[in-house]
Structures are given as structure tokens and as C-alpha cells.
């Protein structure tokens, strides 16, 4: 079922009927009296904005994108060596009985006394 097919659908029939009512032609209608003067006065009383901040923001976003891309690429390139380093460190840590030492420390330490 292709909604773009030229075959007549309920929507195309309805749209065709709606198109028969002439949309008001506003091409030649001028702005209401005083509209342009009011807008011009208000607009020119505003402080002028320069294109500078807009372009700085645009460039900053692009630089941020490039930096993120570089970070992802460098992590993915060095992932192997990072993982092997972690494995190595984990192997070294595995030989020391950290957990046992921690348990002993908690048993030896006296219970905390409530402060008066």
C-alpha cells in the first residue's frame, strides 16, 4: 500500500474538493496602516546583533564534533593495548590478598563509640 500512489484515495478526493474553494489571494493586500512604521521603529530601537557570535557558535560546534571523533578514533585504535594493560594490572593485584587484609582490619578495629 503506497500512500504516494496516484490512485484516488479518500485524502486525494477530499483535498481536491477543498482546493475548489479559492484561497484568498493576499498577494496585493498591503500591510495594515501603521504596521510597517511600528515594526521599523521597534526593530531599529533594538541593539544591533552581529554575525560574529553566530559564526563562533557554528565553528565551536564543528570543533567539538571533530574533537569527539578524534577521541573515539584514538580509543578504538588503542583499545588493544589499554585492555592488555588492564589485564596486566589485574594480574599483579590478584597476587596480593587485599580482600583478606580488609576483613582482618574490620575485625580488629573496635566498634565506633557514640560521641557524648
Amino acid at each position: 500500500m503506497n500512500p504516494n500512489s496516484p490512485r484516488s484515495t479518500a485524502w486525494t478526493r477530499l483535498a481536491e474538493a477543498a482546493r475548489r474553494t479559492r484561497f484568498e489571494d493576499v498577494g496585493d493586500i498591503p500591510a495594515p496602516y501603521g504596521f510597517a512604521t511600528r515594526i521599523a521603529a521597534r526593530a531599529l530601537s533594538l541593539p544591533a546583533t552581529s554575525a560574529g557570535p553566530f559564526f563562533v557558535a557554528k565553528i565551536t560546534l564543528r570543533v567539538l564534533g571533530v574533537v569527539c571523533l578524534l577521541a573515539i578514533v584514538s580509543v578504538s585504535v588503542n583499545l588493544g593495548s589499554i585492555l592488555s594493560d588492564i589485564d596486566e594490572q589485574a594480574g599483579k593485584l590478584g597476587s596480593t590478598p587485599i580482600e583478606a587484609a580488609e576483613v582482618e582490619n574490620t575485625i580488629d578495629s573496635p566498634p565506633a563509640q557514640p560521641q557524648p
Partner: peptide
């Protein structure tokens, strides 16, 4: 307009009004 000419700003609004009002109305 960039030189703060109010008459030019008014002309610009009057010139672009039909285009803007056509979009806004529809």
C-alpha cells in the same frame, strides 16, 4: 537598514508583507 535608516526598514516590511502574510495565513 543596516545603517539604521527607518524609511528603508519600512519599505522592506511593506515589500515582504504579502509573502509573510501568505505563509502565516495558510
Amino acid at each position: 537598514v543596516r545603517a539604521h535608516d527607518q524609511q528603508a526598514a519600512r519599505e522592506l516590511v511593506e515589500q515582504l508583507y504579502p509573502l509573510v502574510i501568505r505563509i502565516v495565513r495558510s
